[in-house]
Design a protein around this nucleic acid. Structure first.
Lengths: 215, 215
DNA sequence: AAGGTAAACTGACGGCATGACAGGACAAGT
DNA sequence: ACTTGTCCTGTCATGCCGTCAGTTTACCTT
């Protein structure tokens, strides 16, 4: 579609403009990683980028608008998460490997983008449709894929008919997202990273296949 | 301990003072339910409470400080969640009922306090220890209880030794919290409330006992 | 009831973020 | 060098933040 980068007042941005715009986004990202969302101010981001607040407002309506921009970028990258599920075999021994890979990929992706994902999560929970949509875009990739896998197992009679594939897939994906977001939280329960992964994988396996993995 | 309510500058608050303080908290709570966290301003809360910003700052250091107050209150109430797990029988048919009750209680509690829990979640994810502690207080009640249940099943040989009780309990609780926080999100996957609950209960059952529920 | 004291509240102020605008700096082509 | 369109910044009005000095209110003592 319209791949044109535009300023707030409708001008098309040239090379130099795009560069500063990008720099502002980078600084914002940095800022989000090191300061509470509520305290991220336009003036700080602008200063960090070596420019003025007025410039910031040329490219973004406000902080939220800029965060949405970052989130969109991330969402594009996030659709590659589908590869973790699509075309996997959920029967027998390969099933557990699939579960492990899914958990691993998910945790890695979340850790890499945790600062933005925090804000996206908040915005979505607050009912902001724009953030909500982005969150869906990321999670849908995995959820739909998982849903299909469960449906297939069901049609083969390998999974109980009472299970709702979408609800189960959604629950699992939501669990992974939350576990990823609060990875540090587990430490205070005396749970080490290394312990967490296999248990999440076990739960994913149990949820999808309904059975314990065959070792 | 010191049950004294104090102002920021150290005075002990009297009857009238406590009343306005309480009113401010109520208005803040209302504000959090209807506006994005980032946009909640002291002046708006004060206006809604029919007082001035200066009064607000007599009782709370800032918006965050007041939210912590609200969260503490909620956390006290939240420890009753333990009752949903403690003393439950996780063998045979009663196990599924236990899982159902846990899911139901959790979702209800979360929905009732969603506005504050959103902020607590954000604060915790951002690494703020105060919010983190409150989140733990609520989740620990359930997690520790679940952990014990799993340990017990393990000692009886009913659950695989490779399972880490704490990691499993933590994963399940985190899943419930996330599912509760994004209840609306499931609708766009075509999942109805009524479908979600039994599937969550099934996952809890699978996670704790390692087996499908006996109907 | 008068007077005293601590509590409760407010008006006002300096400081800072926001957001709009107009004008100057810059790059690229002629 | 000149023109043109893009890009950036100085400046300003507005509004919120957070503090303080000072006023009003409630309560207690005598």
């Amino acid at each position: 579609m319209t791949g044109q980068v535009r300023t707030v007042d409708g001008r098309v941005a040239g090379r130099r403009g795009q560069a500063t715009r990008q720099k502002l986004l980078e600084c914002l990202s940095e800022m989000l990683s090191t300061h509470p969302y509520r305290d991220v101010k336009v003036i700080d981001v602008a200063r960090m980028a070596g420019t003025s607040p007025a410039t910031f407002y040329q490219y973004f309506p406000d902080v939220e608008g800029a965060v949405l921009e970052l989130a969109e970028e991330m969402a594009k990258e996030g659709t590659t998460l589908t590869d973790l599920v699509a075309g996997r075999n959920w029967v027998g021994k390969p099933a557990y490997a699939a579960a492990e890979d899914l958990v691993d990929g998910f945790l890695t992706f979340w850790r890499k983008n945790d600062a933005i994902l925090r804000v996206v999560d908040l915005g979505a929970a607050e009912g902001d449709k724009r953030f909500y949509k982005i969150r869906m875009k990321i999670l849908n990739a995995v959820t739909n894929s998982l849903t299909d896998s469960i449906k297939e197992l069901q049609s083969k009679g390998k999974v109980d008919k009472t299970v709702s594939p979408a609800a189960m897939a959604g629950s699992l994906v939501v669990m992974l997202a939350a576990a990823a977001a609060h990875q540090k939280g587990f430490q205070s329960w005396g749970v080490k990273q290394a312990e967490l992964k296999p248990n999440l994988a076990l739960l994913v396996h149990l949820g999808v296949t309904g059975k314990k993995p065959t070792k």
